[in-house]
Design a protein around this nucleic acid. Structure first.
Length: 835
RNA sequence: GCGAGGGUGGCGGAAUUGGCAUACGCGCUGGAUUUAGGAUCCAGUCCUUAACCGGAUGGGGGUUCAACUCCCCCCUCUCGCACCA
């Protein structure tokens, strides 16, 4: 044990904890306890989100892994064939940044981190099938990223386009929408800029509707994640209306969900990034001012743009658009509040009925028209308005539609537009195609070749993997891809014409790696395919997926998308990767979230040698329900340490008394029967709580039962001995080392405790013979009566009315009625006194 | 602004889903043991009261024999999205 450095002595584990824990960890490994059955009869796939090496392993990470391990061991003992794999999300910037800082290869740092992390997980006694370990930075893994990328490309699901994309100036790479939160890079917190670049995208939008509909079936997912995903996909139904440019008749399609306000359009607004914005003022007196505005807005960092919400800015282009319904001419503006990536990047503005348009119109003195009248308020002059009216009302100043309710008007106007050929129903999604190119080194090379003659050509599948070159002198990104500067890599020949060509210089977003790792685990060593359908079908869908809430709209979207796409490719039989998801809360230390990179945390490598794995496991499980955040405290450790110590002493004090044969339940003393019932209650509670993901209350129930056992007098009772045996099995998922030790002490010749069956409650002995019924008078607790469990309603009511404690409350008053809820409560309701 | 989820002792948290509020643990108080500290064990610990009574689940109102739980209004915290037309 570690010597204490002058601090007050704290509660310590009283037994030789490390010796015991190491013994059984070695034993499990040698016995192959957690090796997967390749032909599962009752399969159970427990998956924890894999580890992104970014430093040491802290208790925050471990909460995730411990929960998975408890489930794995619990289900295994229930007779399931469990798949519980682990791997390393090993590509990515932390490794590259470390390499830049220390001057060695990213793989050095990566494998060093993995080694430490693997050791930490083994220290905690997490039971993985290490035979199926995957490491995404190895060619054995990433070649299949490339293989899948080409398959998606062949299906039209991977494509290249020029777009205004998120650029992180610190990481020197582009980012997906999902990796930008509030205009800030999710990784380094730098302010993200916009750049116009040609990049690779995955056509996730093709699955937008399917993924949205699929959420309905994910009823075992946390509600907040489902809501977040619905919002992220963001379906909106509307119509695309063709306005035209007054001079040329060129079409300007705009998306709107409010065609009922079409008569109220008084100007048009273009996003500065839109194509039309570039050309509209060209060659006119407005050109200079418009160009200046456009460039300024485009270069404005995202964060400033977000902060500017409410303060709108724009410029008149000198041009006019024609409203297809009214033939009105309205001025066209560039406006900073129009989102380029949504709809067509151009909007019709109705200041009377849209708050943003209203603010803009007021600022630039554009007329405001009222075309929807609120049913409540009187007609007012547009000049008197203080805000836009956005609710339902009656259409006015709208020609033939006057008098129509605006919500019905939506349909009527659409029908009219469709008839006249100037509009069509469309559905818009907020979800954007997934930008997967990255200009960094430590990732999967995109397996594409750019040939001057043949264009973009995929690398033939039999030539994969395209290896990430190792002879790189400089990982430092300088605004373009690192691989661009590696001559030996970038220069190649065209697979089609054989002429000189260049490789794609970018690497893939690491979220590609994690989009299908759950499938690779089912067939981790396949050298011909990413995985066989037959193997994936054996295990999918994942039965319990456990990870952080921070992945709600990132990884968990991508991973659903991949599952659907691969299902369409015929590689899989399921459409959803996991039907049950559990997101666990963060662990903080003194109020600060644990973080490897910030070096805030309780480190497994330090904690376990001092307190033991079982104590660490109990601490994260007992502190709070899994989905809630928790603060790590020394007091928490004190509590669970006392628990394991008391357990240890209980078995030390009762050598040779542990039994596994069920006692003769026909011949029990009253005390024995009570203990036996308490045992069964504890078993039932533990099973229900493990299934319901409430490990904190499962442990509380076990603590209570330990208190019962400690207080039990007759140590030679067969029931007591049996309870000692059953408790070992109940403890096994939570404190596996202690349980295995106690099991082997009781049964030296037996195999692992994890080959035993988890206890099942004896249904005949779940309730006490006597039940204690609280008696209320007018809803207030006044007494309790003890009656036989078999007592009928009348018997219980009579006993309640006889109970001495309520006498005083009944005196001189009349009973109006007596309510009895079976087995729960009696409430004596008195007549209202008139005083 | 929109959306989701919370608010229960000194603290972390329970409460069979409308039926004994505060399980379990920490802390605290007293006692036992100990040279002493730590550890351990026993008793107690929502507030108020000598006790009974009374009061208490963010605040206010309602439904009900009965409300932490259901309904309405308000306050507050956390998270997500954020000018999405």
């Amino acid at each position: 044990m570690t010597a204490d450095k002058g601090q007050a002595e704290r509660t310590r584990v009283v037994y030789a904890v490390r010796e015991i824990e190491e013994r059984w960890q070695d034993y499990w490994e040698k016995q192959g306890i957690f090796r997967t059955n390749p032909d599962p009869k009752r399969k159970f796939y427990v998956l924890v989100m894999f580890f992104y090496p970014s430093g040491d392993v802290h208790m925050g990470h471990c909460r995730n892994y411990v929960i998975g391990d408890v489930l794995c061991r619990f289900r295994k003992m229930q007779g399931f064939d469990v798949l519980h794999p682990f791997g390393w999300d090993a590509f990515g910037l932390p490794a590259e940044n470390a390499a830049i800082a220390h001057g060695n290869h990213p793989s050095y740092w990566t494998f060093d981190s993995i080694k430490t992390a693997r050791q930490s997980l083994k220290l905690l006694g997490i039971g993985y099938d290490w035979d199926r370990e995957v490491t995404t930075c190895l060619p054995e893994y990433y070649r299949w990223n490339q293989w899948l990328f080409i398959k998606l490309y062949e299906r039209g699901l991977a494509y290249r386009k020029e777009a205004s994309v998120n650029w992180c100036p610190n990481c020197q790479t582009v980012l997906a929408n999902e990796q930008v939160k509030e205009g800030i890079c999710y990784r380094c917190k730098a302010t993200v800029e916009k750049r116009k670049l040609t990049q690779w995208f995955l056509r996730i939008t093709q699955y937008a509707q399917e993924m949205l509909d699929g959420i309905d079936k994910l009823d075992k997912w946390p509600e907040n994640v489902r809501t977040m995903q619905r919002h992220w996909i963001g379906r909106s139904d509307g119509v695309e209306v063709d306005f035209t440019l007054a001079e040329t008749g060129e079409k300007i399609p705009v998306f709107t969900t409010r065609p009922d306000t079409l008569y109220g359009v008084t100007f048009m607004a273009l996003a500065p990034e839109s194509v039309l914005a570039e050309t509209i003022a060209r060659g006119t007196e407005h050109e200079k001012a418009v160009e200046e505005f456009r460039k300024r807005i485009i270069l404005r960092p995202e964060i400033e743009r977000l902060a500017a919400t409410g303060d709108k800015e724009g410029i008149f282009t000198g041009k006019y658009a024609v409203n297809p319904l009214t033939r009105d001419r309205v001025p066209i503006y560039l406006a900073d509040f129009v989102v380029a990536a949504y709809g067509t990047g151009m909007v019709m503005a109705v200041p009377g009925h849209d708050q943003r348009d209203f603010e803009f119109a007021r600022k630039y003195r554009i007329p405001i028209k009222v075309v929807i009248r609120s049913p409540k308020s009187e007609v007012r002059s547009p000049n008197d308005l203080t805000e836009a009216y956005t609710d339902v009302g009656v259409m006015v100043n709208s020609g033939p539609f006057d008098g129509t309710r605006s919500d019905e008007g939506i349909e009527k106007v659409i029908a009219h537009l469709e008839q006249q050929g100037s509009g069509r129903r469309v559905v818009n999604y907020r979800l954007k195609d997934w930008l997967v190119s990255r200009q960094r080194y430590w990732g999967t090379p995109i397996p594409m070749v750019h040939c001057p003659n043949c264009g973009v050509v995929p690398v033939p599948l039999d030539q994969l993997p395209v290896l990430l070159p190792e002879d790189v002198k400089d990982y430092k990104p300088r605004g373009k891809s690192v691989l661009e500067g590696v001559e030996s890599f970038i220069n190649t020949t065209c697979p089609v014409c054989g002429g000189p060509a260049r490789r794609d210089p970018d690497t893939m977003d690491t979220f590609v790696d994690s989009s299908w790792y759950h499938l690779r685990y089912t067939d981790a060593h396949n050298t011909d395919l990413p995985f066989r359908k037959s193997e994936a079908d054996k295990w999918l869908p994942i039965d319990e997926y456990i990870g952080g809430i921070e992945h709600a709209t990132g990884h968990l979207i991508f991973f659903r998308f991949f599952t659907r796409a691969l299902s369409d490719l015929g590689m899989l039989s399921v459409e959803e990767p996991c039907l049950k998801l559990h997101t666990q809360g963060m662990v903080s230390l003194n109020g600060v979230t644990m973080s490897s990179s910030k070096r805030v945390g309780v480190w497994v490598g330090e904690f376990v040698p001092e307190h033991g794995a079982d104590v660490g496991r109990l601490a994260v499980l007992f502190a709070a329900p899994p989905e809630k955040g928790m603060d790590w405290t020394d007091d928490l450790v004190t509590g669970v340490t006392r628990f394991v110590n008391r357990l240890w002493r209980l078995y030390e004090d009762n050598p040779g008394r542990v039994q596994f044969e069920r006692p003769d339940t026909g011949r029990m003393t009253a005390d024995e029967q009570k203990l036996y019932i308490r045992l069964n209650q504890t078993i039932a509670k533990t099973v229900a709580d493990c299934e319901g993901f409430q490990f904190n209350t499962a442990i509380a129930a076990q603590m209570e039962f330990l208190n019962d056992l400690a207080a039990f007098g007759d140590r030679d009772s067969a029931v007591f001995k049996f309870a000692l045996g059953q408790l070992i099995h109940l403890l096994a998922p939570f404190t596996p080392h202690l349980a295995e030790e106690l099991w082997h002490r009781a049964r030296p010749d037996a195999g692992s405790v994890f080959a035993e069956r988890f206890p099942e409650a004896d249904a005949k002995f779940l309730l006490f013979d006597e039940m204690v019924i609280p008696v209320q008078v007018d809803g207030k607790l006044r007494d309790r009566v003890s009656v036989p469990r078999t007592a009928g309603e009348e018997e219980v009511k009579a006993a309640a009315l006889r109970s001495p404690g309520i006498e005083a409350f009944l005196a001189g008053r009349a009973v109006a009625k007596v309510v009895y809820v079976k087995g729960r409560v009696v409430n004596v309701v008195m007549t209202k006194e008139t005083q």
